[in-house]
Amino acid sequence: MSHSPADPFNAFAVGRDEGFDGAVMHQYLGTSVTDHRGLIELPALAVLFDDLGGYRFYFQDPSASSLQSRLTMSMLARPSIDERLQATADLRMSSHEYGTTVVEITGTDGRVLCSGLARNVRVGRAQNTDAGSASATPQGLNDLPAVGGPPADATGREVIDEIRRGAPIGPIAELLGGSISAADDDGLSYTTETAPWMGNMMGTMHGGVIGAVVAQGCSFGAQHYTRAGQQYQIIDFTVAFLRSPAVDGRRIHTRVTPVKLGRRLSVFDADLRDDDGTLLAHATADVRFDV
């Protein structure tokens, strides 16, 4: 793809206004963050949600590094491809060590698209002050052709099989360096090749990128079980960050398994592991199958 990101903020067109105090950030959507169906799905919002979810807590003591330990995102409305999103944060509970921030993302017309919680925790890791910043919003996320999506009469397994045979995997999956490495009766595996642009201030993978990777794996996992012509949407997603992977080109693998497959609502579990099998993140996703 033509978009070569410098950092997570540039990759997802996430920015903040002058005088930023940790309360408001924004994101310009575009075709470069659409999925294999040509839609904006929850993974595209993960960097915005995660990053703003930590800032109010961070500003309480900027001398100490902090990170997220868990994100919980809920959404029903799906934004349009070319919307400008606004996210607001409210630090509701806080001690020196832990905090909880409420995040709300709204669309161009002010309608609520996504809301949820970010769990903050202070850590003793050194910060890289040369890491990317969200001080400016990049342009160019609409420079890819719109994705047409899979055939309307294809089953989910047919869609996944075609992607594995070379059909378009979608711009956001390409951005994340992802591929579907396995698909069977028990679930699906989504493999991501890490890259330096995915890093945070501490030199490991940005939490929002981890969230986007795992949520994208859940999206493919849900697609795998759809009936012919059936649509789906992730409406609830919770991810616990257990260890931050390095961003030096090594691969990480999201294994998605169904917990319950329902006519209206299905539930999936997802584990993110490295090549050695170390558990990096654990997630659950509730997916509408009656869209």
Rank of each mutant, 00 (worst) to 15 (best):
P62V: 03
A64L: 02
S65L: 05
S69W: 00
L71D: 03
L71Q: 03
L71V: 02
T72Y: 05
M73I: 05
S74D: 02
S74Y: 04
M75G: 00
A77Q: 08
A77Y: 04
A77F: 05
A77D: 07
Q86H: 14
Q86T: 15
Q86W: 08
A87V: 06
A87G: 11
T88L: 06
A89S: 04
A89V: 06
L91V: 12
M93K: 12
M93Q: 13
M93W: 13
S94K: 03
S95Q: 10
H96T: 15
H96M: 14
E97C: 11
G99I: 15
T100R: 13
T100K: 09
T101Y: 01
T101N: 07
V103P: 15
V103R: 09
V103N: 00
V103Y: 09
V103M: 13
E104Q: 14
E104G: 15
E104D: 15
I105M: 04
G107Q: 10
T108A: 15
D109R: 11
G110R: 10
G110S: 07
R111S: 07
V112I: 10
V112H: 14
V112R: 14
L113S: 03
L113N: 06
L113A: 04
L113W: 07
L113M: 08
S115F: 14
G116D: 00
G116S: 07
R119P: 12
R119T: 14
R119K: 10
N120W: 04
N120C: 06
R122P: 05
V123L: 06
V123Y: 01
V123M: 03
R125H: 13
A126F: 12
Q127A: 11
T129Q: 14
D130K: 08
D130Q: 05
A136I: 04
T137H: 01
D143C: 00
D143E: 01
D143Q: 04
L144M: 00
P145S: 04
P145E: 00
V147H: 01
